[in-house]
Design a protein around this nucleic acid. Structure first.
Lengths: 343, 343
DNA sequence: GTTTCTTGCGTGAGCGTTCCCAGTATTATG
DNA sequence: CATAATACTGGGAACGCTCACGCAAGAAAC
């Protein structure tokens, strides 16, 4: 009777068997497997042949038990926020991460952390060495989790600038401020003078920075009417925010939205209000998602290098793994304004 | 320096330490941890107290070494195809998976498999017991990987019906046929008689089944002009396919596209051709993605329960883990036609 | 009162690695 | 030629856990 896990693996060769096959000892095979230099070319070859012949693959658990490394990093996705970020964001970051990790022998462990219970689990996994480090994406700016992890000395990389910067935790972020600024300036330069913004949530760095970028662009401009309405990155909130704006300034001629989804919602509301885009009101979004490509007219939007963010996240973690304790500077990636029909 | 020269104090308590604290033996603590019944209530309590006090968490590697289970499942995403499926698909499935796995003690290991080298790696990971099973999503219908894995006796769950059904591998899929059929019938019932379809790739079950659904809906209808154009689920291919259709039947009055992206492309082409949607040409997409909500007019589309697919995938795998060798029936999930303005 | 269960618990034997130290050849050095 | 340094190699000792046994009591049976 084969009990649950004991089904396979019966034929799986061990280090010892490879050693026997090659006529050497365990230790020597181990050295070969781990690329030690102190092994003669002849035995090296013999061992390699034996490995190939037997199809040997090291047992991760056994190795991990003694090395106290797991060669696994945890990717924590705050589920509630995941919705908020455009989906391509998630997929892009994951792709970048995977790509970079594939170059190493690191595995990616995925975890959707929703509630507090999940957070505890993350802390446990990291704290107990079940993973070597963690990448956290799309959490609120004031989430205590990253700090806690850093405090227990775990390698951590954050996506998105954390709000409380009392503990330096390495992060990568798009240059939200510059992106928002350039979008707003673009609107200004194209002659718009009644420029509103649909801001994102102000408890996330992305929301804050994009609003700051808007403000910064308009800072010393005279004769510009500013309107700020609040949203949460979601489409419905964009619609609502746009209505707010129209109520406060029915002559608004430009809108910078902190997300594509909000921009899409705004365009819908504008249309319903009888405003033409871009003739009456120019609209710029943020994220350059699929949505931006499919509004009518297609949306001008600020693109962030999502995949690159993933790779940088991975690099950040990897260097910490390689050089424990080394403090790392944040990585701020440039954005790009993609001009389409809406502005 | 502790006794016996045991310098390597990681700080993490071991079973032995918990045992000492509770005044029992290793074995007893193990029994408590693993929920064995054969332990008296008094010692149970004592052990639990010790566990809490010391903050004991079992060492995964050590456990895995002896049980030969890893409590980890691998999620393999074929990267090339991932683009093709709408992004919400990926995110939704992952969310569903995570949700279901969170109920168990299973970890999710993510891997983007692009090339053949990656495929080998997957085979290795599964074959060598580094993971207990695998969920494969978005691969071509004729991919040999799932079959190989099943052949080595590994628990596998597939997303999307595999094409070669010589080996029964459990899968979950949306009812693509019924979905496409109902979309096409909807077009027919609304009076359209020149109904084209933009088909997906014919080397994937989703592409095949959606085309079959279209055909099935129109099977015994008389007086319906059919046009089939080929695409690859991508937006550009949708545009091209739509042009093909227009060339072959400039009076086409309805289009069923096998994906939202293709439908969006079609709408664009139609507009450029001076056709109004839905007045001149009705358009229905498939996937009910963000894109569908943001075309102008908003797109009528066939929704598939992506998250549910994730949970079902997980369940499929879990039952295989619990009852090795049990053969499972495919899970076909219903789709739903979401009516919006485009048809 | 002996036998036989039953229940609860302790113990030894690994699981497959890596690490370290002690060997044994081999070569360089004086 | 002796000796020291060097280059490889072998094997014991963990790593932290589970599992199969086995043993000790008390309960149940005769």
């Amino acid at each position: 009777m084969t009990s649950l896990g004991r089904v396979r693996t019966t034929g799986r060769p061990t280090l010892e068997q490879v050693a026997a096959e090659a006529g050497v000892s365990r230790g020597t095979v181990s050295r070969v497997v781990n690329g030690s230099l102190e092994v003669s070319t002849t035995t090296l070859r013999a061992v390699q042949d034996a490995i190939d012949k037997l199809g040997y693959v090291p047992n991760h658990a056994a190795r991990s038990l003694v090395t106290r490394r797991t060669d696994t990093v945890l990717l924590v996705v705050s589920e509630s926020e995941a919705r908020v970020f455009d989906e391509p964001f998630f997929a892009g970051v994951v792709r970048g991460l995977g790509q970079e990790l594939a170059k190493t022998n690191l595995q990616l462990n995925l975890m959707m952390a929703s509630g507090a219970r999940q957070r505890d689990r993350v802390e446990q996994l990291v704290g107990n060495g079940h993973v070597d480090g963690a990448v956290l994406i799309s959490l609120h700016g004031d989430d205590p989790l990253p700090r806690k992890l850093v405090e227990v000395g775990a390698p951590v990389a954050l996506n998105g600038r954390p709000l409380s910067s009392d503990v330096a935790v390495p992060f990568v972020d798009a240059d939200n401020l510059a992106g928002a600024k350039s979008a707003t300036e673009y609107l200004y330069r194209s002659g718009r003078r009644r420029i509103a913004t649909l801001a994102g949530p102000q408890d996330m760095a992305a929301g804050i920075d994009r609003l700051a970028g808007y403000r910064s662009a308009l800072k010393s401009r005279r004769g510009v009417t500013r309107v700020v309405a609040q949203g949460d990155f979601g489409q419905a909130s964009g619609e609502q925010a746009m209505r707010d704006v129209l109520e406060r300034d029915s002559a608004v001629d430009a809108v910078f939205a902190a997300s594509d989804l909000m921009a899409a919602g705004a365009m819908r509301v504008l249309r319903e209000a009888g405003k033409r885009v871009p003739e009456d009101v120019a609209v710029v979004g943020f994220d350059d998602s699929d949505v931006a490509r499919n509004t009518e007219p297609a949306m001008t939007s600020v693109a962030q290098p999502v995949q690159r963010m993933g790779t940088e996240l991975a690099k950040l973690l990897i260097t910490q793994l390689e050089e424990p304790g080394r403090s790392l500077d944040p990585v701020i990636l440039p954005t790009e304004l993609v001009c389409r029909g809406s502005a």
